[in-house]
Design a binder for these strands. Structure first.
Lengths: 247, 247
DNA sequence: TGTTGAATCGCACGTAACGTGTTGTTATAT
DNA sequence: ATATAACAACACGTTACGTGCGATTCAACA
């Protein structure tokens, strides 16, 4: 038999919280003094412990009222719902983390806040990955799109830093001669990272590259406008022509 | 030059939201009609787009007021703070997911809601992983504790299902003869899963096992009380004695 | 039994980011 | 000039409590 203050000390829950749980009918003390002071019995303490457990699991107080009186099968349903919510939220946070990382590197490389890059990055991540790849329909097969989604989801912080860095460097050198050594280096750096991401899958890379060349808004991993794509294309064309001649 | 309704249609933000942003001073229209109707200029539209970007990044409206006027360096700080928050939240959700998964399997195996198992699971996951392992201090080295933390964090759903299932089955057979075939099978199943989790690291497994035997409240992966530990110990003792004889 | 100090009750307002609804006013189309 | 649409301004609701507030009630002491 505890007063509200004693129960509060025992469990670490504030008096106001217990007051509130009483108010909304979640934990009503089984007894009261003549003067109206609340008296909590072991029964109520048990309910409180269960409420705290459900709270940790992320249930709302309103749902607890239902769940606490429900059968085992409904419990399973509720827990599965919670699990799905937790997983969806994790996915959301994961893509948000990638977006924030990309933005952070972009600001670091450029030394100032590039809003159009931020908008592009967010547009890229905001839509579901499937939708983001819809623009590639016709260029890539369903399986290829799924592969790219997986690659994208598994991108490490270093990958993000490298992509952001390359694209930034290329943007700063759009006007240089595509045949110059610097342009060649930049294009090769891009290719290296692309190879790195696609691992062995040369076919996937070339399909993706073809799609990029034909699309007006080329977005791969990070916002990459037509300027950048054209630059890389010109540089690579010269590079391979060069190699042919050497052969 | 947009009225509030036109801006709403253009951006998909509700009129009430724009009203609210005006009210709290986040986006004040740069012009008004004689009658007091709000007129948003391109300037304001830009601010709104930035606000939406920051919203996606998880900033509060209050912080946006500061951030929108700040310099690049403070921006980096704010983004880093957001990143840390996102990562902490991901960690929290990951352990919550494990806890929910374990509870779900326990309910499925037992066919009813076992509150003491739920409390045990939550106690195990609620505290930071470092704290949870403090009880093993003296039995395990710092490096071993870190290894266990990693193993724990990487536990798959199948692992959780198997642990929960084994412990449940053992609890239901506490009174059978440790030398009986069923007891031997249960103990072996436990050992298999333990080997599986610890991979090659036999030393780590035996250190952990020694710790479990000496602790009053043995908790490894899932709440496992002394009964269960004793059962496994007795069964394994007989098993190895048996093997010695065979040799 | 009276008194005092601590505990408690019940109430109200505040939080974040709006949704919903109402009343009164302004803008626009006819 | 009038009908109708759009708008401003306000209020209350949402979630899970925190933070007071004055008015009891309890427990202990005299």
């Amino acid at each position: 038999m505890y007063t509200i203050g004693q129960l509060s000390k025992k469990t670490g829950v504030t008096v106001r919280t217990l007051d509130y749980y009483d108010e909304i009918g979640l934990i009503k003390p089984s007894s009261k003094t003549e003067g109206g002071h609340r008296l909590y019995m072991d029964n109520d303490v048990m309910t409180l412990e269960r409420v705290l457990a459900l709270k940790y699991m992320g249930f709302s107080l309103e749902k607890m009222k239902d769940v606490l009186n429900e059968s085992t099968s409904t419990w399973q349903q509720s827990i599965q719902h919670q699990l799905e919510m937790v997983q969806r939220e994790q996915d959301r946070l994961k893509t948000l983390e990638q977006a924030l990382t990309g933005i952070s590197y972009a600001i670091e490389f450029e030394g100032e806040i590039n809003w159009s890059m931020i908008f592009g990055t967010i547009r890229l991540f905001q839509q579901a990955p499937e939708d983001a790849l819809q623009q590639y329909k016709g260029y890539l097969s369903d399986e290829e799109m799924r592969k790219i989604m997986d690659i994208n989801a598994g991108m490490s912080e270093d990958d993000i830093a490298e992509w952001t860095g390359i694209i930034h460097d290329i943007k700063n050198n759009l006007e240089i001669d595509p045949g110059s050594e610097k342009a060649q280096q930049l294009a090769e750096r891009w290719m290296n990272q692309a190879d790195n991401m696609f691992e062995q899958d040369e076919e996937l890379l070339s399909d993706m590259w073809e799609a990029l060349q034909n699309l007006k808004e080329g977005i791969a991993f990070y916002p990459m406008d037509q300027d950048v794509i054209n630059f890389i294309e010109r540089a690579l064309t010269i590079k391979y022509a060069h190699r042919e001649v050497k052969k």
